[in-house]
Computed example of a mutant assay.
Amino acid sequence: MDLLSLEQFAGCLNETFAARMQGMDAPFVLVDAQPLPHRGRDAARAPFSLMFRNGSPLLFPQQTYRMQHPRLGELDIFLVPVARDREGFLYQAVFN
């Protein structure tokens, strides 16, 4: 299994990832992709953070979601709700 990288997600900004849950697809839009400080030289990949927005009024719990994207395919991504704004809830995924 190849490790996911920031570069793979950077080209997907403002695109929708569909999370399948309870028989329906919940859309999560990738709104930010940023590198994180790199503290070790022998890490398998440079750490990075992704921020997704979901416009549902329901807060989805912190957990791993099976997400589908047209170019990246199926991915399991652990999302943590971190904020709420006028457009919905924001969820962060950290890869280190």
Rank of each mutant, 00 (worst) to 15 (best):
D25A: 07
D25L: 06
F28R: 00
F28T: 05
V29P: 07
L30A: 04
V31Y: 02
D32Y: 06
D32N: 04
D32G: 04
A33T: 11
A33P: 05
Q34C: 07
P35R: 12
L36N: 04
P37G: 15
R39L: 08
R39I: 00
G40E: 06
R41E: 07
R41S: 12
D42W: 04
D42M: 13
D42V: 05
D42R: 12
A43H: 01
A44D: 14
R45K: 07
R45Q: 13
A46D: 09
A46I: 05
P47H: 14
P47A: 06
P47C: 15
P47M: 04
S49R: 10
L50C: 05
F52L: 12
F52E: 00
F52K: 05
R53G: 02
G55H: 00
G55T: 00
G55D: 03
S56K: 06
P57I: 04
P57F: 02
P57E: 10
L58P: 10
L58F: 06
L59Y: 08
L59P: 04
L59N: 04
F60L: 13
F60P: 00
P61F: 00
P61M: 02
Q63D: 08
Q63S: 14
T64K: 08
Y65L: 09
Y65I: 07
R66D: 02
M67T: 05
M67P: 01
Q68P: 02
H69T: 01
P70M: 14
P70W: 08
P70N: 06
P70R: 09
R71S: 01
L72P: 01
L72R: 01
L72C: 10
G73A: 09
G73V: 10
G73S: 09
G73Y: 06
E74V: 14
E74M: 13
L75H: 03
L75I: 01
L75S: 03
D76H: 07
D76V: 01
D76P: 05
I77Y: 07
I77V: 15
F78N: 13
L79K: 01
V80F: 02
V80Q: 13
V82F: 15
V82W: 11
A83N: 13
A83C: 09
R84S: 14
R84W: 14
R84G: 11
R84C: 04
D85F: 10
R86Y: 08
R86W: 01
E87Q: 15
E87H: 13
